[in-house]
C-alpha cells in the first residue's frame, strides 16, 4: 500500500513539473501544446546521457538543457516569427514523437543503473516539485517579475508601454517552462520507470496540458490536480490493488483520460464559471506584434 502511495506521488511529480512549466508559459501568454514532445526529448536524451556517462546528474542536466533548447525553439517560432502557437506546439510534439522514436530505439531496454535513493520512502523529486510549486506561486503573485509575467500574458501592448520587454519576458517563460518539461521527462525515464521504449509517455504530456486548464492557472490547485491524477494513473496501472477483477486492465487504462474529459466538462459548465470566474490569461495564444 505504501509502495502504491509512493509511486502515485512520484507519478504526480511528473505531472506537476511538466504542468508547472506549461503554466509559466501560459501565464506569459504562450500556449505550448508540444509539452509531450519536450518531455519525450528530455526523457530520451536524459536516458541516453545518463546511461553513457553512468551519471544521473549528467542525465538530468542534459534533459533540462534539451528542454530549454526546445522551449526556445517554440519561442523562436511563436514569438520571433509570429507563427501560430498551436502550429508550433504541434510541430514540437510531432518532432519529439518522431525523432525520439528513431534516436532512442537502439537504447530500448532498462537503464541499468542503481535506483535513485528515496527520502523517507518518497522520491526526492516529489519534495522538489512541491518546493517548485511554492516558488512559482510566490514569484507569480508576490514579486515584480511575476506582475510583469502576468501583465505580458494579459495584455502585452499595455506591458510594452509600461516599459516591459514583452518578447524577452515571454522567451524567459517558455525557456524555463521547457526546462521543467524536459526535467519532468527525465524524472520519468530515470526514476519513475527507467526503461526506454517507443513512445513510452502515452499521454502524460497531454494530461499535464489539461491540468493547467484545470488549475485555473494557480500553482496550488495545479498541485492538487497532479496528486489526483498521479493517483489515478497509478490506479489505472494496478487496479487489482483496489478492485480486483472489475473490468479488464485495458479498460482501467482509459480511466485517467475519461476523468480528464469529465473534469474539463464540469469546469466548462455555466455553474462552475459563474462560481470561479475565468482566470484564463486574456492574451493566451495570441501572437504579439510590437507597435
Amino acid at each position: 500500500m505504501w509502495e502504491f502511495i509512493a509511486r502515485s506521488l512520484e507519478a504526480s511529480t511528473i505531472f506537476t513539473l511538466a504542468a508547472l512549466g506549461e503554466l509559466l508559459g501560459q501565464r506569459s501568454g504562450i500556449l505550448n501544446v508540444g509539452i509531450e514532445g519536450i518531455m519525450l526529448f528530455g526523457a530520451t536524451f536524459g536516458f541516453i546521457a545518463a546511461q553513457n556517462s553512468d551519471s544521473y546528474a549528467v542525465g538530468f542536466l542534459v534533459a533540462i538543457a534539451i528542454g530549454a533548447l526546445l522551449g526556445s525553439l517554440h519561442g523562436f517560432f511563436s514569438i520571433t516569427l509570429g507563427v501560430d502557437q498551436v502550429v508550433s506546439g504541434m510541430g514540437i510534439w510531432i518532432l519529439g514523437f518522431g525523432l525520439t522514436t528513431f534516436i532512442g530505439n537502439p537504447y530500448t531496454g532498462p537503464l541499468g543503473m542503481d535506483r535513485i535513493p528515496t527520502v523517507f520512502g518518497v522520491s526526492p523529486f516529489f519534495i522538489l516539485s512541491v518546493i517548485l510549486v511554492a516558488v512559482m506561486w510566490f514569484v507569480l503573485s508576490k514579486t515584480s517579475l511575476g506582475l510583469r509575467i502576468r501583465s505580458v500574458g494579459e495584455n502585452p501592448s499595455v506591458a510594452e508601454v509600461s516599459g516591459i520587454n514583452v518578447a524577452r519576458t515571454r522567451y524567459m517563460c517558455v525557456v524555463v517552462g521547457g526546462m521543467l518539461m524536459g526535467f519532468a521527462g527525465a524524472v520519468y525515464s530515470l526514476d519513475y520507470n527507467p526503461v526506454w521504449n517507443y513512445n513510452f509517455l502515452m499521454g502524460w504530456g497531454f494530461i499535464a496540458l489539461a491540468l493547467v486548464f484545470f488549475s485555473l492557472w494557480n500553482p496550488w490547485i495545479l498541485l492538487g490536480g497532479s496528486l489526483l491524477f498521479g493517483f489515478l494513473w497509478q490506479l489505472s496501472l494496478n487496479p487489482q490493488l483496489f478492485l480486483p477483477g472489475v473490468f479488464s486492465r485495458y479498460i482501467w487504462r482509459t480511466v485517467p483520460f475519461v476523468i480528464t474529459l469529465l473534469v474539463l466538462m464540469v469546469m466548462s459548465t455555466k455553474w462552475f464559471r459563474a462560481k470561479w470566474g475565468s482566470a484564463k490569461p486574456e492574451a493566451l495564444g495570441e501572437p504579439y506584434v510590437k507597435g
Binding site: 502576468r150 501583465s151 495584455n155 506591458a159 516599459g163 516591459i164 486574456e282
Partner: peptide, 15 residues
C-alpha cells in the same frame, strides 16, 4: 492601456 484582470494598484506600479 490597462490590464483588466489586475487591480488598480498593480496597474499603477506595473513597470
Amino acid at each position: 492601456k490597462l490590464v483588466n484582470a489586475h487591480t488598480v494598484t498593480e496597474n499603477i506600479i506595473l513597470g
